[in-house]
Structure formats: C-alpha cells, structure tokens
Amino acid sequence: MNQRLLQGSLRSLVLLYFAVLVALPVFAVYGKGLSLGWEPFWQSVTHPLALDALWLTVQLALLAALINAALGTLTAWVLVRYCFPGRRFLNSLVDLPFALPTAVGGLMILLLLGPNSWLGQTLTSIGWEIVYRPPAIVIAMVFVTFPFVVRNLQPLLEELDPAEEEASYTLGASKALTFRRVILPALLPGLCGGTLLAFSRALAEFGAVVLIAGNLPGQTLVASVYIFGQVESYNPQAAAAVSVVLLTLSFLLLFTMNALFGRRTAR
C-alpha cells in the first residue's frame, strides 16, 4: 500500500515538473505567437528579415551538424579505440562545451580569431574573414554542439564486437569496406540521433553566436538573435512567432528521431 502511494506521488511529481518547466512555457510561446490570430502570425514569420534569419540559421545549423557528424565520429573512434596518454583527460574535455556558459565559448572564438588576434589578422591578410561572418557562426555552433555526436557514439562503439570486424576480414573485406558495411550500420542510430540533436541545438544557439556573428540583418543575423532583437524592441508577438517556427522544427526533429530509433532502443 505504502509502495503504491510512493509510486503514485513520484509519478505526479514528475508530471508536475514536466508541466511547469516544459509544457507550460511551450504552450505560452504558441499562445503568444498566435495571440493576434493567424494573419499577424504569418506576417511576422514571412517578414523578409525574419525569413532571412530563419533560412540562414537552418543552413548554418545543418552545416554545423554535418561537420560534427564527421568530427564527432572521428573523436569517438579515437577515444574508444586508441590508447594514448591523456586519453581520459581528453574524454572529460569533450563535455566542456556543455559545462561552459555558451557566451564564454563565443568569447573564446572571438579572442582566438577576432580582428585583434594574431590568427585572425593572418587569416584576414590571406582573404579569409571569419569573425562577424557566417563561418564564425558555424564555428560557434560546432563548438557548442560538439559533445552530442561523440557521446551518442561512444557506447555503441564500445559495444561493437571486434570479432564482427575480424569476421569481415576473413570473408575478404578490406578495412574501408568493413567500416562501411559492418561498423557504420551499427553506429547509424547513434550517429543520426547525435546529429539531429546537434542540429536542433545549433538552431537555437544564442550566447556563443551573438558575440561573433556581427548580427547584420539579412546577412549574419540568426533566428535566436532576431528573436532577442524583437523582444528588445517591444514586439513580443513577432518574437514568439519566429520562436514557434523554431520550436515546431525542433519538435518535428525529435519526433522523427524517436520514430526512427526509439523502437530499436526499446528492444
């Protein structure tokens, strides 16, 4: 009886927590975005500057996610498969972008590549302008979302049976073919999941981006900074409208991911 009471109250607590911290704010954003009706919502979203910001964000976030898919796979592979001094330290360093305020991440990129830095000046002199341009935004997004792919792949890589690879070799497959046909399919759920999460997170990145993007409307203004700008200029409905787009996109991604891979993990 006591057991049941405990279970019941625990369940209610979780539901309450979820309602207050996740569901209610989400509904509030949807409510605000659509508060003046469908027409103003549509106008806010299709405003040229809003559209530019959304489109730029999606493009750059996609690029950042793809870069992390490759970079993260490589990192996870090296961390799991190779033994070298400093491996554990490096492994704990992977989580740094999560632990750090993202603004600090932005500042680090600014200090490293900004106009006053040695590296930034050298790159500018050969015609590579990075800070205050889209490449800086991608770098910031890659930095902030770096742990997703790595942490999603590591357990899968550890679980991989080395005998499966050896079986592939004895059947005549080269190392490259073995990676493509045997290892990659086993990693795919983690790779896709991690990449989608990275994409979703990159869409929403604010702190790191705002410091280094330059925030020129129509050129380097990403959606999150656009939302910030709208709130600052007393236009909460437009801010909410763009938020609704981002939120819906994130939801769709999460649902797709669950539909694709949820069943596998449930097995």
Binding site: D161, A163, E164, E166, A167, T170, G172, A173, V182
Partner: peptide, 20 residues
C-alpha cells in the same frame, strides 16, 4: 598475406554474425 587473401573461413566462438 592478410586474412583477406588466405582463402580461409573462420567460425568465431560467439559466431560474430553481423547483427544488422
């Protein structure tokens, strides 16, 4: 010769079937 070119078949202790 590497295992690929030895013309051998290998049955592993845990079979090592390709899971996917």
């Amino acid at each position: 010769l590497p295992p690929q070119d030895r013309g051998i078949g290998f049955v592993f202790q845990n079979y090592a079937l390709f899971k996917h």
